[in-house]
Computed example of a mutant assay.
Amino acid sequence: MRINYMFFLVIVVCTVLSGCSKEELTETGLVAKEYLDEKGYKILSYEKQVESYLLTESKLKQPPYDLQWSVAGNNPEPYFDKTVYVEKFIVKGHPLDNWESNGVKSKGKVYVHVFVVDGAVVGGISYPDIPARHGMVGAGYSLDGES
């Protein structure tokens, strides 16, 4: 009897832990995932939908939106007065995997924030995974690590 109880308890704990260990993809997260898959990036994890907001001209005058949308490849004008969903992933196989500057090296993976509007990827930012004490300044790089 005690063995059955312990077995049941182990199953419950494992189920709870596995259910909490990964975020479920949102609808816009799925759009972003498909985009990243098409680019050939290996998705290590889906972190979550970081935020959603209405994109306006006044919003673009505020940090961090002013910097994020100023990155090459992010043209905000067609998306004014629309909701932007920001989906965060950790990927490998990205141009920033081997980023290095002033003796600081990437840990071989990259954080990407994918901007989704009306069911399509419209931009985003990326930044290498580096030690916290060597924080980067600015908005990071374009979604594909080009700027």
Rank of each mutant, 00 (worst) to 15 (best):
K92A: 07
V137L: 13
L96F: 10
K82Q: 14
C14E: 07
N74I: 03
N98D: 08
G19P: 08
L55V: 10
G73S: 05
K105Q: 07
G40V: 01
V13N: 07
N75V: 10
E51R: 15
S58N: 12
M1I: 05
V16P: 04
A120V: 13
I90H: 04
H94A: 02
V114I: 11
Y141A: 06
L30V: 02
G19I: 08
I90D: 01
K61H: 12
G40Y: 00
K109R: 13
S106C: 09
E27P: 02
V121F: 00
L67P: 02
E47M: 11
F8G: 07
G123V: 06
F115G: 03
D66Q: 12
I90R: 01
P78K: 09
Y111C: 03
A139Y: 09
P76S: 11
N75T: 11
V121Y: 01
K92T: 15
Y127G: 00
F8I: 02
S101H: 05
V112P: 00
E27Q: 11
P63D: 13
V50Y: 11
Y79S: 06
S142C: 10
L36T: 00
I3T: 12
Y41T: 03
S70H: 01
G40R: 02
G73W: 09
Y41G: 01
D37Y: 00
E146C: 11
K92V: 10
M6W: 15
Y127Q: 12
Y85Q: 07
V50T: 10
D129R: 09
Y35A: 00
D129P: 04
Y65Q: 13
Y5V: 14
H113I: 01
Y35G: 03
V50A: 12
L36V: 00
H134A: 15
Y46D: 05
S147L: 07
M1Q: 12
Y141F: 15
C20N: 12
N75Q: 14
Q49T: 08
A72T: 07
S52L: 12
V104H: 03
G29R: 04
G138R: 13
L17E: 07
R2S: 11
V121A: 00
S58G: 08
N4S: 04
C20P: 03
K48N: 12
I43L: 05
Y79H: 15
E100D: 06
V122P: 03
E51W: 03
G29I: 05
S58L: 12
D97K: 06
V117T: 02
Y111G: 06
N4M: 11
V84D: 07
L143Q: 02
D144C: 14
K33H: 04
C14H: 08
V91Q: 01
Q49H: 06
H94Y: 05
K105L: 02
